[in-house]
Amino acid sequence: MLAIIPTISQPASKNGMGLFTRKNPRDFEREVSGELAVLFRVARRLGCGHEEAEDLVQTALIKAYKAWDRFDGNHLRSWLIKILRNERLMVIRSQKETISLDEHEEIEVVQEGFWSELDGKLEAERILNALEKLSPPYRMAIHLCDVEELTYEEAAEIMDVPIGTVRSRLSRARQILREQLLAEAKAEAKS
């Protein structure tokens, strides 16, 4: 009969601060199970089609499983997303694609009703289309922070950028999204 060895790790939630411990392979399926949908959504935001996203998640899971005994139990979600993102970058590099990033300094907005103007123009399909049009770094910033609700620190770790860059990308990405959604809504109203 097999004995189940208890681990002393705390649940590795997105905010979990587990103790450093070698992970039992048996925990992998149980702990990672809740992150599958997150990984799939991130893969889609990284520009993968539906099937490509499945393949990417699978490759990332294999890598994660192999490295499971070296995972310290902290921030499981960030750890998995980082593996996934690295895998995607490897594919992109091998295809010699280049990611263009129109990096902007933080922009302070002063006009009245900047965000309020969007009210009533937020439809799921329209938002998803606008998200797809964002350049990859902006799309990732929005997805990690607004969709998966990761902290700036976790997003910075995943994207390999300073926290300030996450903040400025997020700010810029939200503004671009807002402008796109408004423009589309106005164009639709005219027609």
Binding site: L118, E125, I127
Partner: peptide, 15 residues
Amino acid sequence: ALNHFKSSIQKAAFT
């Protein structure tokens, strides 16, 4: 409005 915008993005992604 910005809070609503953020939650709308999340809802859209979850659809």
